[in-house]
Nucleic acid binder design. Structure first.
Lengths: 146, 146
DNA sequence: TGGGACCATATGGGGGTCAATGGGATTTGG
DNA sequence: CCAAATCCCATTGACCCCCATATGGTCCCA
């Protein structure tokens, strides 16, 4: 597998660590990603995590605009001010810091959600509800993928 | 046969496995599908399963939109976060995980339902009712298939 | 036409392997 | 020098490979 897919929920231990699902670690290894760029999602109350090239992409996006524009300023506020680099420990676990807890509402469990080129950390309950809402909205609009 | 047709109900064993109907496995072999892309159906409480090209089709749909739009983000939440790759064991059985149980209400039996280019997993009772409801609705509208 | 051999599919379970988790020991940073 | 982060090892349980058994249908022949 070469992209992040599916979701899984893991427990946070007494030291505040949580195991990143094995399949996600496999993708990271395959893409040779050793350090995670984590940032606050623009839409949902979730932390997004991916390789450093994610940040590069965002910065290229900014570079395409007038560097003194309010839009560029705002974008930088989000991706730089709301972003951080993190590493996994030897067992593939991640420290769940206050940076993550405060933005997501995570307390003692984390739902990992694949998003193709990155993955996300959600509070389990919040993820369930957001997904149900997205499904409901699609139905109302009569849209279908494919 | 080169498409998924008809429906059949099989039992889940003590280890949580269920046999995929032989005719469906035959279609999978014919289409050279070795790994199943499974996702939560957008309308019914059923898991849909098909070849990886199903996911490709969804992703092409997303690619047509602004990648930073809430719509694209939402769509990805469903097809990436709500999708899984699964494999059959050597006897053609599938593990019925919580991912499947929680969404479908499946407990100890699975109804497999052919849908041409993919098939679905339903709780038997729920399938019966949904099919009956669909039939009823058609009758009220005076419509006939074909 | 009825019985029985034969075959394919569904089902049951032993046991190895690996991922998730828990916790002691050591290092690092302020 | 203390607290927190990281390393390292042990335990547990879920999943998967593999082989055995049950079940039901079809075909053949007397």
């Amino acid at each position: 597998m070469n992209r992040f897919l599916s979701h899984a929920t893991n427990r946070i231990d007494a030291k505040g660590r949580v195991s990143v699902p094995s399949s996600f670690r496999g993708v990271l290894a395959k893409l040779d990603i050793r350090e995670l760029y984590c940032f606050q999602d623009f839409v949902f109350p979730a932390i997004s995590a991916g390789g450093p090239e994610l940040l590069d992409r965002f910065e290229r996006q900014i570079a395409g605009e007038d560097p003194f524009s309010p839009q560029a300023n705002e974008m930088s506020l989000l991706i730089h001010g709301g972003g951080v680099f993190m590493k996994l420990d030897q067992e593939g676990r991640l420290m769940v810091t206050d940076f993550i807890r405060d933005f997501t509402g995570i307390t003692n469990e984390v739902t990992f959600v694949g998003r193709a080129d990155h993955f996300q950390l959600w509070a389990p309950q919040v993820f369930q509800e957001a997904q149900a809402a997205a499904r409901q909205e699609r139905r109302l609009r009569g849209l279908r993928p494919g």
